[in-house]
Write a protein that binds this DNA or RNA. Structure first.
Length: 490
RNA sequence: GUCCCCAUCGUCUAACGGUUAGGACGCCAGCCUUUCAAGCUGGUAACCCGGGUUCGACUCCCGGUGGGGGCACCA
């Protein structure tokens, strides 16, 4: 049997390094075994999925060089590879479960479910559906559905006994069925949930091995149960350790740059990114720390994955990236990479209109545009609070901007303008006063080219990173004064 | 709260019953060098705790502790 693995990202935001990390392992495992690597888009969340996000994720994975054999863009024998286009398939499988009595319609309102959860939490009971609609007879259920009463479909779960999950890395994991929730399989909008869609698709697409994040371990029993309900053999499961923030929590954009786009704009080479990701939880047999994707494929071995969650620490990535730049590129290739990175005509043409009126000599361009060719600009706390706002006000401005920019989908001049004005209004500040520290945050200087245009060109990821850096430079709000210390010191 | 996963230098990791616990990043020092890098050399630093099993435990078992994740009509 041909080994088939997949990466199944949800197009609900920026391309995440965690996606690249899991994709890398799936890619290596498939290639190592002469198998196939599939890309599937899990866009069953109608609210949050966007085509734009899907495009960015595909571009990012391509940039890294993780080429898939089948996917929404290249097609393949098991398509469509976009879950939103497989509605009929899920519907059919839900009907099958309903007919076999493995699933039931649930007409409970969200209000009732919220109240139930609240009560369970208050009483310190395990959270989960209480089986209310299980009492409905099939006839009643049919009639209500026919009458147009909104419902979801939930899976039935045994009330007693245990479920054995076999994990390639962790061995046997035992769960009590009593603690497994009666998961929703089909949402009220007719879309399947992840649990149903991933089982149906993995089976139909012939996936033999599922390498996914550790966060999925608790839902494995549900998936196994579904495979059983359908009478299918389940794929091998393998849960990879999660990438961590420096504080060891799950990697998150609040604490770390998580967008692959950030690393690209920052000037990391895709070879180095992949190499570094390969160093996370996995090690080369001879312990070398620099290797290509091809070398990793050749030597890949699940056994060499360590289970402690690795901290995604930029210092070693920096060192590795430096090695790739100076050891693996000749001087022409290096120059070409620099050109592709920022000295390309598209980028230059975006910057040119902002600078033409502001230079007397072409050489004025250097200091004026330095921040366009930098990652971080390292503003000092003094420069940030130099204007009319005190440190605390600047902190609030940076926090509010970060929060609103995160929610912004379209990153362009007008949208940025609107956000900044909204924050000024929210905090009751004059736009002019507020702009000063923001200008320093983004450009590292007190004045220069128009800010909003500059931010639009710079991109969301670099702006976000600079906001965080400036915020960090200011530290936390001052503690209560400690006059004693002052007096004693005097 | 509850269920599950995990545990070697600050960080990434090696070790798969017997090693002075190895390597890499970072940091420190020296060398090299017109500066700075790079490079080279050396140094710093770890087996979470307590019980077992064993002639012998970082390695196996149990219990603590600690960290993490899940507990959505999000994936």
């Amino acid at each position: 049997m041909t080994v088939r693995t997949r990466i199944a990202p949800s197009p609900t935001g920026d391309p995440h390094v965690g996606t690249a990390y899991v994709a890398l392992f799936n890619y290596c495992f498939a290639r190592q075994n002469g198998g196939e690597f599939i890309l599937r888009i899990e866009d069953t969340d109608r609210e949050r999925s966007t085509p734009e996000s899907e495009r960015m994720i595909l571009d990012a994975l391509r940039w890294l060089g993780l080429q898939w054999d089948e996917g929404p863009d290249v097609g393949g024998p098991y398509g469509p590879y976009r879950q939103s286009e497989r509605g009929a398939i899920y519907r059919q499988h839900v009907d099958e479960l309903l007919a076999k009595g493995h699933a039931f319609r649930c007409f409970c309102s969200t209000e009732r479910l919220d109240a139930l959860r609240l009560e369970q939490r208050a009483k310190n009971l395990p959270l989960g559906y209480d089986g209310h609609c299980l009492a409905l007879s099939p006839e009643e259920s049919e009639r209500m559905a026919a009458d147009g009463v909104a419902y979801v479909v939930r899976m039935k779960v045994p009330r007693a006994g245990q479920c054995l999950v076999k994990d390639l890395l962790r061995g046997d994991i035992v769960f009590e069925w009593s603690q497994v929730d009666m998961q929703v399989l089909l949402k009220a909008d007719g879309m399947p949930t992840y649990h149903l869609a991933n089982v149906v698709d993995d089976h139909l697409m012939g996936i033999t091995h599922i390498l996914r994040g550790e966060e999925w371990i608790p839902s494995a029993p549900k998936h196994l149960l579904l495979y059983g309900y359908f009478g299918w053999d389940a794929p091998q499961l393998c849960h990879l350790p999660l990438l961590r923030n420096p504080d060891r929590s799950k990697l998150s954009k609040r604490k770390n740059p998580t967008s692959i786009l950030f690393y690209e704009r920052m000037g990391y080479l895709p070879e180095a990114m992949l190499n570094y990701l390969g160093l996370m939880a996995w090690s080369f047999p001879d312990e070398r720390d620099k290797f290509t994707l091809q070398e990793m494929v050749a030597e890949f071995d699940l056994e060499r994955i360590s289970l402690g969650g690795p901290v995604f620490d930029l210092t070693k990535l920096n060192w590795l990236n430096g090695r790739w730049i100076r050891e693996s590129l000749d001087i022409q290739q290096y120059a070409e990479r620099v050109r592709q990175w920022a000295l390309n005509s598209e980028y230059l043409m975006a910057i040119a209109p902002l600078t033409q009126q502001r230079v007397e000599r072409l050489s004025d361009l250097g200091p004026l545009t330095l921040f366009f060719f930098s990652g971080y600009v390292n503003p000092s706390p003094e420069a940030l609070v130099g204007g009319k706002l005190d440190a605390d006000a600047v902190r609030r401005v940076l926090d509010a901007l970060t929060r609103r920019f995160d929610a912004l989908v379209a990153w362009n001049r007008d949208a940025i303008d609107a956000v900044v004005r909204a924050v000024a209004a929210e905090l009751g500040l004059k736009l002019k006063d507020m702009l000063k520290p923001v200008y320093v945050t983004i450009t590292g200087n007190p004045s220069g080219v128009p800010l909003f245009d500059a931010m639009a060109i710079l991109g969301k990821d670099l702006c976000r990173a600079r906001l965080r850096q400036a915020r960090a430079a200011l530290g936390e709000a001052e503690e209560e004064e400690e006059p004693e210390t002052e007096v004693a010191a005097g």
